[in-house]
Design a protein around this nucleic acid. Structure first.
Length: 592
RNA sequence: GGAGCUGUGGUGUAGUGGUUUAACACACCGGCCUGUCAAGCCGGAGAUCGCGGGUUCGAGUCCCGUCAGCUCCGCCA
């Protein structure tokens, strides 16, 4: 059907007889001469249809051809006449003189043009995703994703990993995200759950003696969506036997090198810095620090504890914190701009945002008058502030201070151009607590997941002081985005049972929901650990996209709808019956 | 569950402190045109302004509701 690909032709092909097939990218009809930009996956080449060269029939066909028609062109590659070369086109030195043109398929006028830089409502793009994906930059993403996946497979294969598939139709387990459920036809009243991750299966593969497992696997979580969260997404999941934390982290670091190279040509430096969870929270206000820039949070609680500014003093007295960040060179921010920052902080519960603007001629601030000169001096010194800087403070509960200032920091870092999208800063976050107390559920919950091993030396604390038990867990963060997390797992059934107990899972439920795991662990489970990386998120960052949707071929909208297929959709009464389920909404509607 | 932003021909936008035939660009259709590649020139078609209600003499514009898309909080072991 074709001998060459459009985008691959060049001056070395001059004189060659070629047959091409592709889409009509554009047509310029000069009456007596027609140019067709023919596009295939490889690129665009100009086809010239001239009555001197083309068969009369071919010229007639060229007149009828429209955008996005699929055509086949046979002709000769010629060097373009001097002065008509197009340096903006990879194939711009040559053109193909058509002899015959064959319409393989016509096309309706597309709802938007197939262009590189297109600003079309995303809903329209998603509805016509097949057209959207024809655009060169979307094709580049698809290719980058393929190359990244291939690099991962090659690397892990060399490292002795086996790719093993795990079930999609599996068992719902407590803890974690909401499950997508699939009713069973053969077991009335029972349900499968789609996996949130293959966590338990990969651990069982370790018990099975696989030793090194990986999978590029779809995971499902029925939670609300975000720019970087989709209900189904792909994890690069791996697990290793006979390893400790460093083994997993070191392997991942080595894997990121070919992965990033394949996806973007980027060379990453290893090893990645490590930062303890507590320090990340203190310095960045988050457990996923963006380390592309500074502007770290500074604690001034000790300075303002006895100051005359009640908001600060009272927050300190109540066990809260007063922390600040230094927005360098932002002293000129207007009242309105600061109000906008205050609103951003308020989203995270901050009741206010105090500021000191260090103007050239003194301090501009509604709160400066409350501070003694020594206090101001100490604050300025603590934040390493200089004239021209804008200091922003939040006084509140520690979690509110961290979340609000952490978010402001990221916002300002982006706004001030401190976080260029082509700079990549990986960082490991380590020393997570194993457990955290959930006020709402009035019980401890796992910070990571219930299968994460506690540090051996902290095991005695499980009963006495569970909040202080550290986990053998590690998160991988890139530019302020969590792209993966893993841990060394519990491999002894007694310890696993104990953790379930501490999590408030009754023994009967633990046996019912996790009995298969406990049993497997009892049959000689090797020490093991692993990690799961969010493949889509990683690609999103590496390709400089702002949403995860841009690196997925067929993503869903924020409400979880697929605008291309129309899913989710109603199903027939017969399907309900076969699944032994009845729509509650129907009764609810009838009852109104 | 909550907050915010957006919604006007196919696409992107203007019009929005009340009143004309809802404007422009691109795309589309027809004609002319042998070196264009953002082709050009001439002509044309195409929008009940997301939907429903209200206020008014009069609503794209104001109000209420609703739907959709997006961003965020909660949620996401």
């Amino acid at each position: 059907m074709r001998t060459h690909r459009c985008g691959e032709l060049g001056s070395r092909d001059v004189g060659r007889q070629v047959t091409l097939a592709g889409w009509v990218h554009a047509r310029r009809d000069h009456g007596g001469l027609i140019f067709i930009d023919l596009r295939d996956r490889a690129g665009i080449v100009q086809v010239v249809v001239s009555p001197q060269v083309a068969a009369p029939e071919a010229f007639h066909v060229a007149e009828m051809v429209r955008s996005e028609y699929v055509i086949q062109v046979a002709g000769e590659v010629r060097r373009r006449p001097p002065g008509t070369e197009n340096p903006r086109l990879a194939t711009g030195e040559i053109e193909v003189y058509a002899q015959t043109i064959n319409i393989l398929n016509r096309a309706k006028t597309p709802p938007f043009e197939i262009e590189e830089d297109l600003e079309v409502d995303e809903a329209v793009r998603l509805r016509y995703r097949y057209l959207d994906l024809r655009r060169p930059d979307m094709q580049r993403v698809l290719e980058a994703r393929h190359r990244a996946a291939r690099a991962v497979r090659e690397f892990l294969d060399r490292e002795g990993f086996w790719e093993v598939e795990t079930p999609f139709l599996t068992k719902s387990t407590p803890e974690g995200a909401r499950d997508y459920l699939v009713p069973s036809r053969l077991h009335p009243g029972k349900f499968y759950a789609l996996p949130q991750s293959p966590q338990l299966f990969k651990q069982i593969l370790m018990v099975a003696g696989v030793e090194r497992y990986f999978q590029l696997v779809r995971c499902f979580r029925d939670e609300d969506l975000r720019a970087d969260r989709q209900p189904e997404f792909t994890q690069l999941d791996l697990e290793m036997s006979f390893v400790a934390e460093d083994d997993v982290m070191e392997l991942v670091e080595r894997m990121m090198v070919p992965l990033c190279r394949a996806a973007t040509g980027l060379e990453v430096d290893t090893p990645f810095p490590r930062i303890p969870y507590g320090e990340a929270l203190e310095r960045y206000g988050t457990d996923r620090p963006d380390t592309r820039f500074g502007m770290e949070l500074r604690d001034v609680t000790d300075i303002v504890r006895d100051c005359a500014f009640k908001v600060f003093a009272e927050a300190a007295a109540a066990g809260g914190l007063v922390k600040g960040i230094n927005a360098r060179g932002c002293a000129h921010f207007s009242r309105r701009e600061i109000e906008e920052l205050t609103a951003r902080a308020a989203v995270y519960g901050a009741k206010g945002l105090a500021y000191l603007a260090l103007a050239g001629d003194g301090i501009r601030s509604p709160i400066a008058k409350f501070f003694a000169p020594g206090e101001l001096e100490a604050i300025v010194a603590r934040l390493e502030a200089e004239p021209g800087d804008l200091l922003l403070f939040v006084a509140d509960r520690p979690d509110v201070v961290a979340a609000s200032l952490g978010a402001l920091r990221v916002h300002l870092g982006t706004r001030l151009g401190l976080a260029p999208r082509d700079r990549f800063r990986f960082v490991w976050v380590v020393d997570f607590p194993l457990l955290t107390y959930d006020e709402e559920e009035r019980r401890h919950v796992a910070v990571h997941h219930p299968f994460t091993a506690p540090r051996e030396e902290d095991i005695p604390l499980l009963d006495s002081d569970p909040d202080r038990v550290r986990a053998r867990a590690y998160d991988l963060v890139l530019n302020g985005v969590e792209i993966g997390g893993g841990s060394i797992r519990i491999h002894r059934p007694e310890l696993q049972e104990k953790i379930f107990e501490i999590l408030g899972i009754p023994p009967a439920e633990a046996r019912d929901k996790f009995g298969f795991l406990l049993e497997a662990l009892a049959y000689g489970a090797p020490p093991h650990g692993g990690i799961a990386l969010g493949f889509d998120r990683l690609l999103m960052l590496l390709t400089g996209r702002e949403t995860i949707r841009d690196v997925m071929a067929f993503p869903k909208t924020q409400s979880g709808a697929d605008l291309l297929t129309g899913a989710p959709d109603a199903v027939s009464a017969r399907q309900w019956r076969e699944l032994h389920i009845r729509p509650a909404w129907r009764e609810a509607v009838a009852g109104k």
